[in-house]
């Protein structure tokens, strides 16, 4: 018994080391073209903000309101500053992380190595997500430094803590949800467009394009039981401490149920898909 325990403990330590290596390797990959990376990052942030600012300024000016659906103009700009960053955290590595390898036969190596495929892929995905979380905190720090407005955002450790919980769950949920479209490549070869649909759908129904509070009530009631609001809207509300304990627990529970569902569905699809895999590639 003792030998068995020490063997499995040794295996866990070994695997942890491997996944740590994968994590750091992906971080290095991410930063290969540093100038490009930062120009893309600041460019994206700039355009997202400019478009959101002028769009909502126009709406606020025309209606003459100080606040709409609970958002002031500053509040909504903050929302549009954070939402794309959260979206990027949750979307991690990008489309094709498995589908491409299934299509061109590179999946062989994962099947041959003494590795857990999901463990490897999640370590790679998590490297991206972790880095983007760092970016979000950098932007949050700069925002507080230059535009501090306690009515819009107030730094609190509780908010950060709840955000990290909600964000981690969102990442796991999205990873397994996204895996489903990737594993369909076992049957359909090319599934890039499905990934795009999912990303786009997540962004729209999750509150990435427009805050969910602006949706009609009937739509919100339906959305509440889908996985989408828990990918962007929920972490953002957690960061802002815009949730009561009850609301947080409810969102967390629904999100957890969806996560478990997609973990199960993803494993099922992976197991079935392997029987279809020829390992030949193009």
């Amino acid at each position: 018994m003792e030998i068995l325990l020490s063997r499995s403990k040794g295996r866990v330590i070994k695997m942890t080391k491997v996944y740590r290596q994968v994590f750091f390797m992906e971080l290095r990959n991410l930063l290969t073209y540093r100038a490009d990376f930062w120009i893309n990052f600041f460019g994206q942030t700039f355009f997202s903000l400019v478009v959101a600012y002028y769009l909502w300024l126009s709406v606020f000016e025309y209606t003459g309101s100080q606040s709409m659906q609970g958002y002031t103009l500053q509040g909504i700009i903050f929302y549009y500053l954070m939402a794309p960053l959260i979206s990027r955290i949750q979307q991690g590595q990008g489309i094709g992380f498995a589908a491409r390898e299934i299509y061109d036969g590179q999946l062989n190596k994962y099947l041959l190595y003494p590795l857990n495929y999901f463990g490897y892929k999640f370590a790679a995905y998590f490297a991206y997500s972790s880095f983007y979380i760092g970016q979000l905190f950098l932007i949050l720090f700069l925002y507080n430094l230059f535009f501090y407005d306690p009515s819009v955002y107030q730094f609190s450790l509780a908010g950060i803590f709840l955000f990290l919980i909600a964000m981690t769950l969102a990442c796991v949920l999205f990873f397994f949800l996204f895996s489903l479209t990737e594993f369909l490549a076992f049957w359909f070869d090319n599934t890039w467009s499905l990934g795009v649909i999912l990303r786009f759908g997540t962004s729209f129904f999750g509150g990435g394009l427009i805050p969910l509070k602006f949706f009609p009530d009937w739509a919100l009631e339906i959305l509440e039981f889908t996985p989408f609001p828990y990918l962007i809207d929920f972490p953002l509300k957690a960061l802002n401490l815009d949730l009561t304990v009850m609301e947080f627990s409810k969102s967390f529970s629904i999100s957890l149920v969806w996560t478990l569902f997609f973990v199960f569905a993803s494993l099922k699809l992976w197991n079935k898909g392997q029987y279809k895999y020829t390992g030949v590639g193009i």
Binding site: Y33, A35, I39, N40, G43, T45, F47, V51
Partner: peptide, 18 residues
Amino acid sequence: WTSSPRGFADVFYAGEKV
């Protein structure tokens, strides 16, 4: 000039919203 894989495509996609 940069030899990067996608150039500044991500900036363009963000700007495209305009």
